[in-house]
Design a protein around this nucleic acid. Structure first.
Lengths: 152, 152
DNA sequence: GCTTGACCTCAAGTCGACTTGAAGTCGTAC
DNA sequence: GTACGACTTCAAGTCGACTTGAGGTCAAGC
């Protein structure tokens, strides 16, 4: 079982050394030991990092990913995956609506966009918050969007 | 032409008063005057805020939106809209791939996800960065992703 | 005259995921 | 023996879009 130092892990995983130290700090990974000061990693860390990369790509926060690893072996919850898939589906539909609206506006021949009914409809939808949950990755943890109450 | 104070603009636009002040600071909106200390707005600000909301929803940063308003009348560039639509399309395809992968993984009967070929393929794709440009809204302005160089 | 409430300014704080910088420790090569 | 390069620690900085807090102003109503 070869031991890897942080530089090699970084090269092979595409994750910077500083990020690896950060991941360790938040409990995502752990070196198998030290040689002098230097962290030594097991090759298995690469698999774990791949899982982290996948989790991030799927929109999970590092904290959520850490919780998956929490009790020893990675415990991947199928229901959670399905839920995330559903969220992605909703996001995709919203983005598709936006894309179609943008395409129309790009093609529209109205003298000003403000006179294009489709464009105005999009504007109204945006104000109404129709696009708000876009990329509602639990990660973004919306900074207390108090969303000024409509009519007190 | 009725004058609105910041509270009413907030109520009618769904944008908090502090956010309105912030928007003013970065040059996105401007009151038509003051009454005492209080900002007074023209109703036209509501339209502008709707445009801001739409721009945000489409993934533009406030800075980019401000540049649209820069020279007097909003100058919406059709090519820009089309480009953003194309980006959204790419994002949608990526998200769809992720969604399908997650759904498969959720349904997969392999004893461990690590033994599921589909799941492993997803992991490899994530490491390779296949999902990185997801939601590549120019807004996110990737904080110098130096992306640890593969093999120096 | 005093309270209330809605506004004001300005500086500082928040969120997540890192990066950067300063200062120090090693092993190896010259 | 000393320079180099790769590592180490720890605190602080970064990004965007705001929010929060302290302390102040002002008109209206009691």
């Amino acid at each position: 079982m070869r031991e890897l130092d942080i530089g090699e892990v970084s090269r092979r995983s595409g994750v910077s050394a500083s990020a690896l130290r950060y991941y360790e700090e938040i409990g995502l990974i752990r070196p198998i030991g030290r040689r002098g000061l230097r962290r030594q990693y097991d090759e298995a860390v690469l698999e774990r990092l791949a899982l982290v990369a996948l989790g991030r790509a799927a929109g999970f926060s590092l904290e959520e990913i850490a919780s998956i690893f929490a009790q020893g072996r990675p415990r991947i919850d199928r229901a959670r995956l399905a839920a995330r898939a559903d969220e992605l589906d909703a996001t995709i539909r919203t983005l598709a609506a936006m894309r179609d609206g943008l395409r129309h506006a790009a093609a529209c021949r109205a003298p000003s966009h403000l006179e294009c009914p489709t464009f105005r409809r999009l504007m109204r939808a945006a104000v109404a918050g129709a696009f708000e949950p876009v990329m509602a990755a639990p990660s973004r943890a919306a900074p207390k969007r108090s969303r000024a109450r409509k009519r007190a």
